[in-house]
């Protein structure tokens, strides 16, 4: 358990930082020109169509222009963030918010290059991903199955929900101490906390999804000879799927929050542990690297869920036709 009181960097640390900012300046110069050209290209991109009939072509161009516009804005948005960070660290801003000890983008980048190959860094990432996947998969299996059953059988819901309603408002982080007591190893207790984070959004959204299934579809299925199991698997589950995926997306977010908190408090390995350890050991660039890694992993996970949703619900992509 990390209990060391972190110290503020002084003297030599600050000098090193100035040296690194100089490096960063070079890096930024090296990076900026292509970025600028790209942006200029984007502005120029929608070419005027010569000899093209108005109508579909013009509409397509309009669409393209809108897409490029939003892309340009995205690039600008990221550039502004990096620019703000860079300026803050370059000039060591110190009005209420203090950039004095914040590592510059350049420092972070150089440190990152050094870290990428290290097995320890990879182990940290692998451990976190493993924990997320275990906790999240258990939460999905349990949340969806319980959600379907509770949505279908009022008695089961009546039996389980009062207890779950009491537990639900407790944030996953608050489970950390009891979880360490409950489970035989740190590993299982961290997975349990991740599970707790993901479980409730998945359960509640599944329940909501079951309630949203059009009752006429259930009647139709019963008329076609569907038994209870077929009804659950072939009608209620697919009918609830859009809401289930909402639950999975939300659950994945909460799972990450819970995992990082658990790793920071009780962890060994993992990106949360890595980030907190960097703070304790005054390796400030590593803090930012940890944050970035967490951000990227979170993004990948939610992207994975969106992809899964598209694959699992092809009918949602199918075009709609007007009545007639």
């Amino acid at each position: 358990m990390a209990s060391a009181i972190p110290m503020r960097a002084v003297g030599p640390q600050a000098d090193a930082a100035t040296a690194r900012t100089a490096e960063l300046h070079k890096v930024e110069e090296g990076m900026n020109p292509p970025l600028l050209i790209k942006r200029r290209d984007l502005h120029r991109a929608p070419p005027t169509p010569a000899g093209l009939p108005p109508g579909t072509g013009a509409r397509l161009l309009g669409l393209l222009r809108a897409q490029l516009g939003s892309l340009a804005l995205s690039v600008l948005s990221i550039a502004l963030l990096l620019g703000f960070w860079y300026l803050g660290t370059e000039y060591r801003w110190d009005f209420y918010i203090r950039f004095t000890n914040v590592p510059s983008p350049g420092e972070v980048f150089t440190e990152l290059m050094g870290l990428v190959g290290s097995t320890q860094f990879q182990t940290n990432i692998g451990t976190s991903v493993g924990r997320i996947l275990s906790g999240f998969c258990i939460a999905t299996a349990l949340g969806v199955v319980l959600g379907l059953l509770c949505g279908r059988y009022a008695v089961l819901k009546g039996l389980l929900f009062p207890a779950l309603e009491v537990l639900r408002p407790i944030p996953a982080i608050a489970w950390v101490p009891i979880s360490i007591m409950l489970w035989p190893s740190t590993e299982t207790s961290i997975i349990f906390i991740t599970f707790i984070g993901a479980f409730f959004p998945i359960l509640l959204n599944t329940l909501h999804g079951v309630a949203s299934v059009d009752p006429v579809l259930i009647r139709a299925a019963r008329c076609l000879g569907a038994g209870e199991l077929a009804l659950l698997v072939r009608v209620i589950l697919p009918g609830a799927l859009p809401h289930i995926f909402t639950g999975l997306a939300v659950g994945m977010g909460v799972a990450w929050v819970s995992l990082i908190a658990a790793e920071m408090i009780s962890g060994q390995f993992g990106v949360g542990y890595f980030t907190w350890e960097a703070y304790s050991l005054i390796e400030y660039p590593h803090i930012v690297i940890g944050m970035l890694v967490i951000g990227v992993l979170g993004l990948l996970c939610s992207g994975g869920i969106r992809l899964l949703a598209r694959l699992a619900m092809p009918w949602q992509r199918a075009g709609h036709k007007e009545n007639g």
Binding site: R219, A220, R222, C223, L224, G239, M313
Partner: peptide
Amino acid sequence: DGPGSERGVVFQQYSLFPWL
């Protein structure tokens, strides 16, 4: 006694399974 496939039903609201 309950619904069964020997009695087919056509509903006003179409009631097709959208995912199939």
